[in-house]
Structure formats: structure tokens, C-alpha cells
Amino acid sequence: MGIQRVLSRGLLPLVAAFGLVAVSGPAAAWEPTKSVEFIIPAGTGGGADQMARLVQGIVAKHNLMKQALIPVNKSGGAGAEGFLEVKAAKGDPHKIIITLSNLFTTPMATGVPFNWKDLTPVAMLSLDNFVLWVNSEDPYKTPKEYLDAVKKAGPNAFKMGGTGSKQEDQIITVAIEKAAGVKFTYIPFKGGGAVATQLVGKHINSSVNNPIEAVAQWRAGSLRALCVFDDQRMPYKDKVTTTQSWNDIPTCKEAGIPMEYVMLRGIFMPAGVSPDVVAFYIDLFNKVRATPEWKKFMEDGAFNQTFMTGKGYADWVAKAESLHRDLMKEAGFLAKP
């Protein structure tokens, strides 16, 4: 905070000049001079929170950074609170944020003024998959069988559960509806764990949980995975249940639902930081990715391990943003101006 905060508020031009010197610093490798705040724009216990705390643990255990990395949850307003804070902390090199799809969906759905362009993209850590799940006691073995049943039952008869409203789960639901010509009743819950449980208890008919949110129930035989919304199958071939590995789950595309969706798990930081700072964090996350703990986490959660930085990352984010805008526009989720 401190100098950078004053700088961002434009209160003291004199201090600002001093601050600039401090931020640009020597050209050689930059390093944090105090603890780094790791903002999580979601509540404790969710997917982003788990990942951030894992990163914190890895950094501490392997001593990857001299200063501490401190996760801070800022979940208010579907994550808007966290993003607004990073936006306001222009030039602060001691603040990073982990994103999920709410980077795009929250400003579009609520009209809260921020955009990923207000932030500096650092690195894409991975992409999170979505899987179409049903209760294993239901007779549906393939996506087609399930969607045919949904169609036959008529609009709103089947219930799809998901996390939050006008966010990724509901966007996927709308996309499925459009692709298959069906209509679900979408029921929003507060977290992914609750959704999976509701599905096991048969209070809803299906969900689009992330793998890590539903894997326990899948292994126990309570849930059945129908298809994954990525453009290719998940690469993990070790058996997870007695009969299936993640790789055995077909993509929804090959199963006849022409759509794909993955969720960004990436790192951003405030605008106006020098390239040295960004380089430091890219290097840090490269080291994190090399640890066995990270690799295990990726496999347990069946993540898509695409890693990107620099322009490639920025381009990906820009593309993802326009994709979300289109999806949300069609679904009628954009905030009224």
C-alpha cells in the first residue's frame, strides 16, 4: 500500500515522483520488499481459494520467495470487491489476484466498472474443466440420452444446479439449452460442493461441476460423468473410479453437443507495474508449477494445464472476454445500462 496508494489517488505529486523511482527501481531482477497480498475474489473453500492457498503453501514450503505470500479473500459482489481493489492499487507491485470467470461475468452482469484491461495479465496457471454430471441412479448413460429425456419432459421440468447466478455454470447451462433445444430450470447455489451434494440427494437432476468439486462423489459411485466441455478429452489416464479415468469421459462435442467452455485460473496484477515485476512473478509461478505438490493438485482436479504468459495470455483473455460477452448477450444476462 503506502506510496502506491497515494500515487493512485493522485494526492501528492511530489510523492508520486518519488514513488515512480521506487517502482521502476534498478533494471536488474526485481524482488518484493514486503509481503505480497494474494487476493482471492471468491469465498473460502471454493476452487480459486483452494488453488491460492496451495500456491501459498508451496511458496512457503519450497522457500520460493523471500517475503511471505498472504491470501486475502475479497468475495463481495461476486468478486467485484477484489477486482476493484486491484484496479485501485495502480502501480502496486506487492499485490496479485487469482481470477476465475467472474473476471468477465461480474462486470457484465452487474455493471460494476472494471475490466481485465484495468489489470496487468501475469500468467495463466491452468484452465478448469466442466463436466456434465447426473445422479448414477438415473438411467442416462450418455449426454444424448439425458438431453432426449429433458426434451421429452418439456421445458423447466429438469433442474440444473450451479454455482451463483449469471456466472459460468449458468452460462454453460444456457449454451447447452441452445445447442440441444431444451430448457432447464436453473437453480443457483452458493458453492460447488453444495451443488454436488444436492445432485447426490436428487434435489436437482444434473450439474456442471468442476472435476474437483464432484470427484469424491464420482469415486463413491453416486454420480455419473456424461461429458466434458473442453475441445479435447482430459489427459489423465489413471483410473479414478473402479472403471473409469478422467480420460474415459467423452467430450461433449463428440457426444453431439456442439459447445466447449473452460474457465481461466490465471494471475493478474495492478496496472502500471514495470516489466521486471511481471517477470519476477512469471518466474515464481514457473517454479510453483515445477513442484510435485502442484502436479498432484492438477491431476486430482483434472485441470487443463495450459500455461501462458505475455502477449499470448493477453490475446487469450481478450478472446475469452468477447466469447463471454456473446454468450451473456444471447442469454440476456448483460446488466441494463
Partner: peptide, 24 residues
């Protein structure tokens, strides 16, 4: 079941996953 009955349990749940244990 892997359902946290309280916020604290939710964080513990995350911990289990990180230690490589799968609640459920």
C-alpha cells in the same frame, strides 16, 4: 460426504484435498 457443514469445515476440506486425501 465431502459437504462442509460450516465455513471452518469448508477450509478443512480444502486442506484434505491439498494433503492428497479425498473426503467423501
Amino acid at each position: 460426504l465431502g459437504i462442509p457443514g460450516s465455513p471452518t469445515a469448508a477450509v478443512l476440506l480444502g486442506g484434505l484435498l491439498i494433503w492428497g486425501l479425498q473426503p467423501g
